[in-house]
Amino acid sequence: MTETERVPGEGDMWFFVVFESLVFTSYFCVYLYDRAQHEHAFLKAQSALNLPLGIVETILLLTSSWAIARCVQEVRAARYRSAQRFVLATVGLGVAFFGCKLAEWVRLIGDGHTFTSSEFMQHFFFLTGMHAIHLLIGFVVLGVIRYQLADPQHRSHQTIETCSTYWHTVDLFWVLIFALLYIVR
C-alpha cells in the first residue's frame, strides 16, 4: 500500500460524525440503564417487534452505504454517469428503508404499541424517530451530490465525499440502534 494518506471528504465533517455519535451514545446509555431497571417489562414490549423486518431494513441501509461508497469510487475515476446511477440506487434503498420503517410504525401503532404505551416503546419510537430525521436530512445531502454530479461547473470531489460521509453516518447510527432495540435481551 503506497497510496498517500488523505482525509475522506472535509475534515470538519468528522467533527459532526464524532459529536453526533457521542450524542446518540448518551441516548443509548439512558435506554440501556432504564432497560436494566425494568427488564421484564422491556422484554415483554420488545416481543412486539418484527425482527425479520428489522434485518431487511438493516440490509437495505447497509447496501445503500455500499452504493454511495461505490459512487465515490466512480467519482474518483471520473466516471460521473455511473456515479449518478449509484446515487440513484442509494436514494432508492433509502426510500425503501423509510417505507419499511413507516410500515413498521403503522403496524405497531395499529396493534396498540404507541409512543406512550410502554417505556420500551417510548425509547423505540424516540430512537427510530430521531434516526428517521437524520435519514430525511440525508436525502437532502444526496440531492447535493446529484446536483454536483449533474453540473461539471459545480463538481467538487471533496463535497461529494463529505456528503457520502453524512450518509454513512446515518447507517452507523442505525447499526447500533438495530442491535440495541431488536437484539439486546
Binding site: E3, E5, R6, V7, P8, L62, S65, W66, I68, A69, V72, E161, S164, T165, H168, D171, L172, V175, L176
Partner: peptide, 16 residues
C-alpha cells in the same frame, strides 16, 4: 459493523 463501515465504506483506512 460500525468499525467496518468506518474503515471500508467511509475510507478511514486511507486517512491520516
Amino acid at each position: 459493523k460500525f468499525r467496518i463501515i468506518l474503515g471500508e465504506f467511509m475510507d478511514v483506512r486511507h486517512a491520516p
